[in-house]
């Protein structure tokens, strides 16, 4: 029972990070039709931004406050990078979606290489506050506290994003754009501003995932963005492209499958089980879980 609780909460912590990456990917794809390979780079920049500013923040006595300030710096770094990428690199290529994907691929490789060039390829220890590394006992299981932080962060982002999409004017434009971009443009609304906004939101969420994953894995590493991105892609496809709610469900399913298979079957089988899950979902529902079944 303890193991089961520990596994489940750890899986939800992992799912939280998948969701943070996948939500941005899914929105960007849904609205703009761009598969953003540079999303992993936003994550890496968020993580390394937080990590590298922390050593300059010795003057903040409180450990948690220092972590929060450093984290906000990381999020801003991710947001600025994402907005710049959209404005400078993606914008001139509107109406050329294949080339947009190619540019994000080049960017992902270049940014990862640059980060590796500056800080080296090894894992660097990440200074998370003491209380996050301690454990809380729930139903007899000792759960590392950072898992709760990850889950809470993902829930806040989920609720915030849904509220933003449902209640605000920009949210309305984004939702309408995901449904039918041509129609929104025809109604005289400039969808391009929504593009930059969606990229920035995605960048912040990915950077947040970067900070949290550094806590989860206990260190920062240039290639983590790429490896997490692949699972986020799987989450996006299983959840249905363009659906935030679908990404949330799929993230939980993928996280649980991975952890249970890793523990109850054999270590390393979890990742394979996730790929198998993807294959099954595609065979039964090619449009993902949240889309109606359509013949292709």
């Amino acid at each position: 029972m303890e193991t089961f609780v520990l596994l489940t909460i750890t899986a939800l912590g992992l799912a939280a990070m998948y969701f943070l990456i996948a939500s941005g990917l899914s929105l960007i794809y849904g609205l703009m039709g761009v598969l953003n390979f540079a999303h992993g780079a936003f994550l890496t920049v968020g993580a390394f931004g937080t990590w590298s500013i922390t050593e300059h923040l010795d003057w903040i006595g409180n450990e948690t406050l220092r972590f929060v300030v450093a984290g906000i710096f990381g999020l801003v770094a991710g947001a600025v990078l994402a907005a710049l990428v959209e404005l400078v690199l993606i914008r001139p290529l509107y109406r050329r979606p294949i080339e947009q994907v190619l540019v994000t691929v080049g960017l992902a490789l270049a940014v990862t290489a640059l980060v590796q060039g500056i800080w080296g390829p090894e894992v660097q220890p990440f200074p998370s506050p003491q209380w996050m590394r301690e454990t809380t006992t729930i139903l007899g299981a000792s759960i590392p506290n950072d898992r709760f932080v990850e889950i809470a962060a993902a829930l806040i982002v989920l609720v915030g994003l849904q509220a933003f999409l449902r209640r605000s004017r920009y949210g309305l434009i984004i939702r309408a754009g995901v449904e039918n971009r041509a129609m929104v443009t025809a109604l005289g609304i400039d969808v391009r501003r929504a593009f930059t906004l969606v990229f920035t939101i995605g960048g912040v969420a990915a950077a947040l995932a970067g900070v949290l994953s550094s806590v989860y894995f206990g260190g920062v590493e240039p290639h983590r963005g790429t490896s997490l991105l692949i699972f986020a892609f799987i989450v996006v496809v299983i959840g249905g492209l363009g659906s935030i709610g679908g990404s949330a469900y799929a993230a939980v399913v993928v996280g649980l499958t991975q952890q249970y298979a890793n523990y109850y079957a054999s270590s390393g089988l979890g990742d394979l089980a996730v790929v198998l899950l993807l294959a099954i979902v595609l065979l039964i529902r090619p449009g993902g879980l949240t889309r109606p079944v359509v013949a292709h």
């Binding site: 598969l35 692949i230 799987i234 065979l283």
Partner: peptide, 13 residues
């Protein structure tokens, strides 16, 4: 069974 970007992601997986 899927095409375009979804195909790209599935082959990646």
């Amino acid at each position: 069974r899927v095409s375009g970007i979804a195909f790209a992601m599935v082959t990646l997986a």
